[in-house]
Simulated assay, not measured.
Amino acid sequence: MRRIALVTLVVDDYDEAIRFFTEALGFRLAEDVPRSDGSRWVVVEPGPHGAGTGLLLARAKGEAQAARIGDQTGGRVGFFLHTDHFARDHAQMAAAGVKFVEEPRREPYGTVAVFQDLYGNRWDLLQPAG
């Protein structure tokens, strides 16, 4: 079996990013390990017990990486957070201050709304159809 285990998300600050993903989005902190170069290996996951692909929160090093914070996909939706209960998760995220950039809508593939993470990266909150 093969699967994508981690996707890197370039961030400005580890602790700020951890707070957003764990408190506003309900992810769990899977790993936070200091590294010898002063960086940290920080992984957050959307589900319990490693369910789903994790995000490696990587603090930007240098100007080129810092310039990518919040625009890793050129303004497109780059991340897709699936849910089994759209209304519940949408309400919880909105109450936690998550910025939704559109109203929820029904599409043939499911119920969806675009939101931004704390840096402006665009995400779909998506409850797949069926």
Results as ranks from 00 to 15, higher is better:
residue 8 T to D: 13
residue 92 Q to S: 13
residue 47 G to Y: 00
residue 32 D to G: 05
residue 3 R to F: 09
residue 87 A to K: 12
residue 46 P to S: 09
residue 5 A to L: 14
residue 27 F to I: 02
residue 47 G to P: 03
residue 114 V to M: 09
residue 68 R to G: 11
residue 102 E to P: 06
residue 115 F to S: 06
residue 45 E to K: 13
residue 16 E to A: 15
residue 9 L to Q: 07
residue 110 G to Y: 01
residue 93 M to T: 03
residue 95 A to F: 06
residue 61 K to I: 00
residue 48 P to E: 15
residue 7 V to R: 12
residue 41 W to K: 09
residue 98 V to L: 11
residue 21 F to M: 04
residue 71 D to E: 15
residue 7 V to Q: 08
residue 119 Y to H: 14
residue 4 I to R: 08
residue 12 D to M: 06
residue 67 A to P: 03
residue 7 V to G: 11
residue 46 P to H: 04
residue 79 F to W: 12
residue 119 Y to P: 00
residue 49 H to F: 05
residue 80 F to S: 12
residue 125 L to H: 00
residue 73 T to P: 01
residue 66 A to L: 11
residue 26 G to Q: 05
residue 48 P to N: 12
residue 69 I to L: 13
residue 35 R to T: 07
residue 129 A to N: 12
residue 57 L to I: 05
residue 89 D to G: 05
residue 129 A to R: 09
residue 16 E to K: 15
residue 8 T to H: 04
residue 115 F to E: 01
residue 20 F to T: 00
residue 91 A to D: 10
residue 108 P to H: 08
residue 68 R to P: 03
residue 38 G to H: 07
residue 113 A to L: 07
residue 83 T to A: 12
residue 74 G to M: 11
residue 124 D to Y: 04
residue 4 I to K: 02
residue 105 R to S: 15
residue 27 F to Q: 02
residue 75 G to S: 08
residue 78 G to A: 06
residue 41 W to I: 02
residue 23 E to Y: 01
residue 26 G to H: 03
residue 115 F to W: 01
residue 67 A to Q: 13
residue 72 Q to D: 04
residue 17 A to V: 05
residue 22 T to D: 10
residue 108 P to Y: 04
residue 16 E to Q: 14
residue 37 D to W: 05
residue 25 L to K: 01
residue 68 R to F: 03
residue 64 A to D: 10
residue 69 I to N: 06
residue 34 P to R: 02
residue 33 V to L: 14
residue 78 G to N: 01
residue 97 G to S: 11
residue 81 L to C: 02
residue 102 E to G: 08
residue 122 R to F: 07
residue 19 R to E: 14
residue 112 V to R: 10
residue 111 T to N: 13
residue 31 E to N: 10
residue 63 E to R: 02
residue 113 A to R: 00
residue 11 V to F: 05
residue 85 H to M: 08
residue 50 G to N: 06
residue 115 F to I: 01
residue 8 T to E: 15
residue 126 L to G: 05
residue 66 A to S: 15
residue 100 F to I: 08
residue 104 P to S: 11
residue 32 D to R: 12
residue 80 F to R: 12
residue 7 V to T: 15
residue 37 D to F: 09
residue 36 S to P: 06
residue 117 D to Q: 04
residue 27 F to E: 00
residue 19 R to W: 07
residue 82 H to I: 06
residue 97 G to E: 10
residue 123 W to A: 08
residue 84 D to L: 13
residue 85 H to C: 14
residue 29 L to Q: 03
residue 55 L to A: 15
residue 107 E to D: 12
residue 46 P to K: 03
residue 5 A to N: 14
residue 27 F to M: 11
residue 91 A to P: 04
residue 79 F to Y: 14
residue 8 T to K: 09
residue 40 R to S: 12
residue 77 V to A: 12
residue 90 H to P: 03
residue 2 R to K: 14
residue 21 F to Y: 15
residue 95 A to S: 12
residue 93 M to Y: 09
residue 36 S to T: 08
residue 72 Q to I: 04
residue 83 T to E: 15
residue 23 E to D: 15
residue 85 H to R: 14
residue 116 Q to L: 15
residue 50 G to Y: 02
residue 42 V to M: 09
residue 15 D to G: 09
residue 6 L to T: 02
residue 125 L to F: 06
residue 57 L to S: 09
